[in-house]
Design a binder for these strands. Structure first.
Length: 265
DNA sequence: ACCCCTGTTCGGCG
DNA sequence: CCGCCGAACAGGGG
């Protein structure tokens, strides 16, 4: 599931539980997603507390409970939040379930690349406060982006776009979509991008991120035709503009699809 | 059987 | 010590 807009979509799935008390929890305690969490303390503390607020930043989600208890969720590759009925029985991959009187809030994650965090205190945890400005916010200006790029001159631009410290919420398909629209070869070293292309990169990044948010809100609808998104999954995907085969190669450690015509070095 | 996968972290190498 | 890369994590689908 999870990049920027889909993370926000997942966050909202628990909205029906806002302002309601947690009656009990069900946890698969030894599972990898709870690494570094004191599962016993989490279970004890959240029982009887009230879910009061939530927010998504990049790929991270945080839920605030009464008494200053913060539950952090990272969805990884296959994590998903959903809601079930109050008598729900968790299946194999339903690792965390919060029961309320009228529903069960479920975090499932098949591959367990996701993560749960737990923090107690009046202020949000440090890892949350340190998440850089959203790529859709006014703080994420052109110069702000350029400053980050200058610190990763040697990396292929595709790899740089995947850095969550600079581009929170950008993942594999969004990076490909942005580079395709900006006409930049994903293998190009970040420091070699021309001033004109940098400007274009910033504009397309903002556009793709905002459009993605728009299409996923308030209900999940598919992205419009003409997005690279629809083509990049299949082996014989074609450039939406030229109808020529996309190139597929590993760049920055991830499968990358691009149009050799649109994206010249 | 073998290869693929919307993510992150860690160990090794230069 | 730093930057970069590939492997590992885990499970299911084609």
């Amino acid at each position: 599931m999870p990049e920027l807009a889909e993370v926000e979509f997942n966050r909202r799935t628990w909205d029906s539980g806002m302002g309601k008390k947690i009656l009990k929890l069900r946890i698969h305690p030894k599972v990898r997603i709870f690494r570094d969490v004191k599962v016993g303390a989490l279970e004890k503390t959240l029982t009887g507390s009230t879910l009061s607020r939530s927010e998504a930043r990049g790929k991270q989600i945080i839920f605030l409970f009464s008494g200053g208890n913060w539950l952090g969720i990272h969805l990884g590759m296959t994590g998903r939040l959903r809601v079930e009925g109050p008598n729900f029985e968790p299946a194999k991959h339903d690792h965390l379930v919060l029961y309320q009187s009228h529903r069960a809030l479920v975090f499932m994650d098949m591959r367990q690349f996701g993560r749960v965090r737990f923090h107690q205190g009046t202020a949000a945890p440090a890892w949350w406060r340190q998440i850089p400005p959203s790529v859709t916010s006014s703080e994420f200006g052109f110069d702000f982006m350029r400053q980050f790029l200058l610190r990763h001159k040697k990396l292929p631009i595709k790899a740089t776009l995947l850095q969550q410290k600079g581009f929170p919420g950008i993942g594999n398909w969004m990076a490909d979509e942005i580079l395709w629209r900006a006409g930049i070869d994903p293998r190009l070293r970040t420091g070699k991008i021309s001033g004109v292309d940098l400007r274009k990169l910033w504009q397309k990044l903002r556009w793709v991120a905002r459009e993605a948010m728009r299409w996923v809100s308030p209900t999940y609808s598919e992205f419009p035709r003409g997005w690279l998104f629809h083509e990049r999954w299949n082996k014989d995907g074609k450039c939406p503009r030229h109808r020529i085969p996309l190139r597929r190669e590993t760049v920055g450690g991830r499968t990358t699809a691009w149009c050799p015509q649109c994206q010249q070095t």
